[in-house]
């Protein structure tokens, strides 16, 4: 029996990436998001990036599996996030998270932090106990 989530509980830190150009292209194909910003080196350079940034949604895709591995007794009710800083192709990041509030639902603040000052993704997840859990 798992203890209920409590304020301050931390997710285990998980490595995210690095993603190479092939991984970014595979995500573009599967998601349909073929924005050339993520695929075209010259265009990325034109808007000031040393390498094409990884899709923000590719980073957000790391969250639900990490939450499920951490708390398989909880279901995801809401997931939201802001893509603060880019994570460029070839850069590694770390996913971490902490429970901010519990009131029946649990609000978890999650960050995916790359090499820049700000996080590449600052997200919030609302978890609810799975039915029958």
């Amino acid at each position: 029996m798992t203890d209920p989530l409590a304020r301050g509980d931390k997710m285990p830190e998980t490595p995210v990436g690095p993603f190479d150009a092939a991984a970014v292209a595979a995500y573009a194909a599967a998601s349909g998001d073929d924005n050339p910003l993520h695929l075209d080196l010259a265009l990325a350079a034109r808007v000031g990036f040393a390498a094409p940034p990884v899709h923000g949604m590719r980073l957000m895709a790391e969250i639900a599996p990490a939450l499920a591995a951490w708390r398989p007794d909880m279901a995801l009710k809401r997931l939201s996030g802001t893509f603060v800083e880019p994570l460029l192709t070839g850069e590694a990041a770390i996913l971490s998270g902490r429970v901010l509030r519990v009131d029946g639902e649990a609000l978890v603040r999650i960050s995916i932090q790359g090499p820049r000052r700000g996080p590449s993704l600052l997200a919030e997840a609302v978890l609810v106990p799975k039915e029958g859990a």
């Binding site: 194909a29 599967a30 998601s31 349909g32 073929d34 590719r58 957000m60 599996p65 995801l76």
Partner: peptide, 25 residues
């Protein structure tokens, strides 16, 4: 399953961010 493979996650349950692909129809 194509989306799940591209994010390195299981296809069951459906990946939580899969619906983003609908905006690319």
């Amino acid at each position: 399953s194509a989306f799940a493979a591209a994010i390195g996650a299981p296809a069951n349950p459906i990946p939580a961010t899969f619906p983003i692909a609908w905006l690319s129809a």
